[in-house]
Design a protein around this nucleic acid. Structure first.
Length: 252
DNA sequence: TAAACCACGGGGTAACAAAT
DNA sequence: ATTTGTTACCCCGTGGTTTA
């Protein structure tokens, strides 16, 4: 599909506002999930030049963080711990976090599965990339471009030294009732948060989607369901409660 | 029709301030 | 010193909206 880009971007390669955005993106839940790295903290870190690229996050020392307003002992420890924890995130989260243009969650996931290691992706030629389904010339070009820039390669090396996970772990696809099924959640579950539940479904070969359509296989209803339940009823989609959902999880 | 995006209320936690 | 209260910041999770 083709679409016009209408967004305007600052042309300054060292634009601090863009850097801030990138760092926030990198630390976001969908990417490296670094708790405590919010807007104000990132803004301050960038302003103080403690963070000049995403890899600098991993070079932060306790003393640096004491310079942040509202960050004392406890918060600093929490943040450092969150940073440490992020090092073992799955490869696709890291790829997504890099902020390569046109590489969102979906493309990052595909790439991680295809190449199994960041270094393989690093060396990929445009043709290699375009051979992959769902990766077209625009994304391929963008990736090659990203990894051809010296600064980006430096960032990658710093990340490597910091000990981040550069490999896609092997995981056997388990047999499950969710294999190939499209599932939508509404309301809140007692045992899992929605994202945890979605993660589980995906790990079992299912698709956790966000809106109910004719294609939906079933809808899991928790406490205080919203409009999705109504839609499911209207379309005659199979509806199950949390208990039934948990049973499906445990059964093969 | 499918999926990503968005706004916003709720709640937790840590820093800070005041009161005991 | 200890406690109690307040504020700021951030994360979470939702439903609904927007987009193509």
């Amino acid at each position: 599909e083709k679409k016009e880009e209408v967004a305007y971007r600052c042309v300054n390669p060292n634009c601090p506002a863009q850097l801030e955005r990138l760092v926030l993106h990198f630390g976001s839940k969908q990417a490296m999930d670094i708790e405590g790295l919010g807007e104000s903290a990132v803004g301050e870190l960038v302003r103080l030049k403690l963070v000049n690229n995403i890899a600098d996050i991993y070079l932060l020392k306790q003393e640096d963080l004491t310079k942040l307003p509202l960050y004392k002992e406890k918060k600093i420890q929490n943040l450092l711990q969150a940073i440490e924890k992020s090092k073992s995130r799955p490869l696709w989260r890291l790829i997504y976090g890099l902020g390569i243009r046109h590489v969102g969650e979906k493309a990052a996931f595909t790439l991680a599965k295809e190449f199994r290691a960041l270094d393989k992706l690093l060396q990929a030629k445009k043709e290699d990339l375009e051979r992959i389904p769902e990766i077209g010339p625009v994304i391929a070009e963008s990736i090659v471009r990203y990894f051809s820039q010296k600064e980006n390669l430096k960032v990658i090396e710093t990340l490597r030294k910091a000990g981040l996970n550069f490999e896609e772990e092997e995981k056997g696809v388990k047999q499950s009732a969710f294999l190939g099924k499209k599932i939508v959640f509404t309301g809140e579950l007692k045992k899992y948060s929605r994202s945890e539940a979605e993660e589980l479904v995906r790990s079992l070969g299912g698709f956790a989607l966000s809106s109910v359509t004719k294609q939906t296989d079933f809808v899991v209803v928790g406490e205080n369901p919203g409009s999705k339940l109504d839609k499911a009823k209207k379309l005659g989609i199979k509806i199950i409660n949390e208990e039934e959902f948990l049973e499906m999880l445990s059964s093969k």
